[in-house]
Amino acid sequence: MLSAGGLVRSRVLRLRGPAAGLVRWAGPATVSVPEPRVRSVSGVGGASGAGGWYGSLSDSAPVHLCEHFLVGVQQVSGLPWWLSIAMATVSVRTLITLPLATYQLLILSKVEALQAEISELAKRLRYEVSVRARERGWTEKQSRVQFQKNLRRLVSQLYIRDNCHPFKASLVVWVQLPLWVSLSLALRNLSLDQSALRGELAAGGALWFPDLTVPDSTWILPVCLGLTNLVIVEVFSLQRVGASGFQRLVLNGIRGFSVLMIPIAATVPSSMALYWFCSSLVGFGQNLLLRSPTLHRILRLPTRRSDSPYRDLLSAFIAKYYK
């Protein structure tokens, strides 16, 4: 933590507007399909036989939009269905998820860079609250309320000043999760008996999963999915030094969900399991890409990053699991 004094005063004076006074004492895209080769995929969700909210979700507009997107990719590329699913996954993760993840990295870096300034403001604010508490005879609880209220106001003004409210960092989740669900249900609909394309998916597999409409009986895809998700979680956990009890609880919950996805993936059509595995694999690659020092220099991130992130990651992994 930086010391108070002239440096603290100079940083505080840079706040504009109401933040100049530390304390306010208030009182206590779709893909077009070539016309000659259009194949109907409408009505698949409605014929799924599922009722209630699940049936409505399977028959929703976003899911049908994803169906047409998948069919369009396969028709335009002319690739087998298994390779077309992989290609569609890479396209979505690259064109939609990667830019949002990059934006998330930029926001989080700005928030991290503000921590030193927030610490200085908190130190100065705590002193001023204690002085005013003695003058007005506040109790400890009243002093704590005044401190927390004014600190939240100052931190909010800092976020506005640097345009980096942490909520913006969650944008990638609000886009990626509905997209993942919609594409998963679209592949499920295309694999149903009522689908006009079921025959093509049944013959569109490869290697140990020749039929994309039935579950992978070898469990190779489900296990690969679970292992990839676990690696992603462990890489993320290596960034958390001195994690709190709640953070460790969340990480263990995600680990448990990653293991639970293995039997779930073994009960769904292979097309869905293939999409989930490809999505996790591309996501892992993008996480590694976002650690690149070159990318950080291009984005001009305000925080210092290691010049050898991959070596540091490998060293941290070895230190945690092999020593």
Rank of each mutant, 00 (worst) to 15 (best):
S279V: 01
R188C: 12
I264A: 13
L230M: 13
L177S: 09
L227C: 14
R305K: 10
A47K: 03
S48M: 02
T228R: 01
S130R: 07
W276Q: 02
A86F: 03
P28D: 10
P62N: 09
A50N: 06
R9V: 11
Q104C: 12
R300N: 13
L301F: 06
H68Y: 01
G226N: 04
I318S: 14
R144P: 04
V63P: 05
L2P: 07
K110C: 14
Q157L: 14
L121I: 14
C66A: 15
L158I: 11
A26F: 07
A169N: 09
F236Y: 12
W81S: 02
V250S: 07
G199H: 07
A20D: 05
L179C: 11
K168T: 05
R161A: 14
S56W: 12
T228K: 00
S280H: 03
V172I: 11
F257N: 09
I232E: 09
L114K: 01
V12T: 09
L108F: 05
F236R: 06
A203E: 15
R161D: 15
E135R: 03
P18Q: 02
L15P: 00
V73M: 08
P99T: 02
P222D: 07
D307Y: 01
E234M: 00
I85R: 01
T139I: 04
S40V: 07
G283K: 02
W219N: 13
V268Y: 03
V175T: 12
A47T: 02
V231Q: 04
Q104P: 12
T89P: 07
G6A: 13
V73P: 04
L183K: 00
V31D: 07
R153H: 13
P293I: 07
A265T: 11
T218M: 08
L225K: 01
L238Y: 00
V63G: 09
G253K: 03
Y159N: 04
V231L: 15
G199S: 15
K110Y: 11
Q194V: 15
V145E: 09
S308M: 08
W82N: 06
E117V: 14
P28Y: 07
A116K: 10
R126M: 07
R93Y: 09
L201I: 03
E234N: 02
E112Y: 05
L251W: 00
S119P: 00
V241S: 12
L207G: 09
L106R: 10
W53P: 13
L221D: 02
A202Y: 05
P36W: 03
N189Y: 05
L98M: 10
F246Y: 11
W180H: 14
A203W: 02
L179H: 08
Y310R: 00
R126V: 01
T89E: 09
R311K: 08
E135N: 04
A88L: 14
S308Y: 05
S91I: 15
A29T: 11
L281K: 00
R188I: 14
V38L: 12
Y321Q: 03
V92H: 03
Q74Y: 00
S217P: 05
E200G: 02
Q148E: 13
L95E: 08
C278W: 00
L274W: 01
L185P: 06
K110A: 10
L225T: 04
H296G: 10
S56I: 08
R152G: 12
A122F: 02
S237I: 05
V175Y: 06
R134A: 14
G285H: 06
G205M: 03
E112V: 03
V181L: 15
